[in-house]
């Protein structure tokens, strides 16, 4: 598998290499900062208590976007399977979460 991937996209790898490495490092750093920030706002009383949950969800949604587009390459072609699976997962998660909250 890995060998095949390396062979199939050599030009792409080379032309984007510095750019994509930077992108990965930046997103990785951003995700660590967001995670630390999430712990920080819960552990220290820096924001109002009723703001904690919305803020956590906001941090989480940024992380999801970073995860999907930098590390799972959703901005590239040929992602039909990912999209199907992600949407199925989202639907199931929403049904389950809404079910638990409402009942």
């Amino acid at each position: 598998m890995t060998e095949e991937q390396q062979n199939s996209s050599p030009q792409q790898e080379e032309s984007h290499k510095p750019d994509s490495t930077m992108k990965h490092i930046v997103s990785f750093a951003a995700m660590i900062v967001l995670t630390v920030a999430a712990f920080y706002i819960v552990m220290e009383d820096v924001v109002e208590p009723n703001m904690i949950l919305p803020l956590l969800l906001f941090f989480a949604s940024i992380q999801v976007v970073l995860q999907l587009f930098t590390f799972m390459h959703l901005n590239q072609k040929g992602t039909a399977y990912y999209t199907i699976f992600i949407f199925t997962g989202v639907i199931i998660a929403v049904v389950s979460a809404v079910g638990i909250i409402l009942m």
Binding site: T88, I92, V95, S96, G99, L102, M103
Partner: peptide, 21 residues
């Protein structure tokens, strides 16, 4: 497979979640 995720409460009918659920 898909419907399998939408039925879990049938194990919990007697929990008392109400007639609607």
């Amino acid at each position: 497979g898909f419907l399998g995720f939408m039925v879990w409460v049938h194990h919990m009918f007697t929990v008392g979640l109400g007639p609607v659920s």
